[in-house]
């Protein structure tokens, strides 16, 4: 079980945070990978396109008699599994793992409620709406990056 990457998209279809973890045999103690390098790359845009399409399919196929919305939880692509959670303010939290990991809804909600709200929403220096380009188009908060890395590393499914 492995966690490969962690994405956050805002409601303007932009990738505001991207964290990729590189798991090699030599780096057992230090955390390696990239931060906010793939926000504008094809992989982020492809992932958002898939999420958007699958959310449309989920809502269209849901029974009309139900009042609640049908939430997309996860989907499997090849040997990867993409876990998805969306807040009512339409921030999309995505974790890419390998196929054996079961539901991560609790982890995604924890990332939103205890880290994103604490270090991004309640931070007076962060903009209310992320811009498409420039300094405020990504989450560069060192505390948020550090705390989320520690939290994800503490999970048993991070690397095993």
């Amino acid at each position: 079980m492995t966690i490969y990457s962690f994405f956050i998209f805002d409601r303007h279809c932009n990738c505001i945070y991207n964290r990729e973890y590189t798991h090699t045999a030599s780096s057992n103690d230090t955390l390696s990978g990239q931060i906010n390098k793939s926000n504008d790359s094809n992989s982020s845009k492809l992932l958002f396109g898939i999420l958007y399409s699958l959310k449309t399919i989920s809502n269209k196929l849901a029974n009309d008699e139900e009042t609640e919305m049908n939430e997309l939880k996860s989907f499997t692509i090849g040997s990867f599994k993409v876990h998805f959670w969306e807040s009512l303010s339409r921030f999309k939290f995505v974790i890419v793992t390998n196929g054996e990991v079961s539901q991560l809804s609790d982890v995604l909600f924890e990332l939103y409620s205890n880290y994103f709200i604490k270090y991004v929403v309640k931070n007076g220096l962060m903009p209310v709406e992320f811009t498409a380009e420039g300094e405020y188009s990504k989450i560069n908060n060192g505390k948020f990056i550090e705390e989320t890395d520690n939290y994800l590393q503490s999970l048993s499914i991070f690397r095993s």
């Binding site: 849901a62 939430e71 939880k73 989907f75 499997t76 692509i77 090849g78």
Partner: peptide, 14 residues
């Protein structure tokens, strides 16, 4: 083996 294989939602799996 490389494409979309499974979708899990609250009300159905595909």
């Amino acid at each position: 083996r490389t494409g979309l294989q499974k979708i899990e939602t609250d009300m159905f799996n595909l």
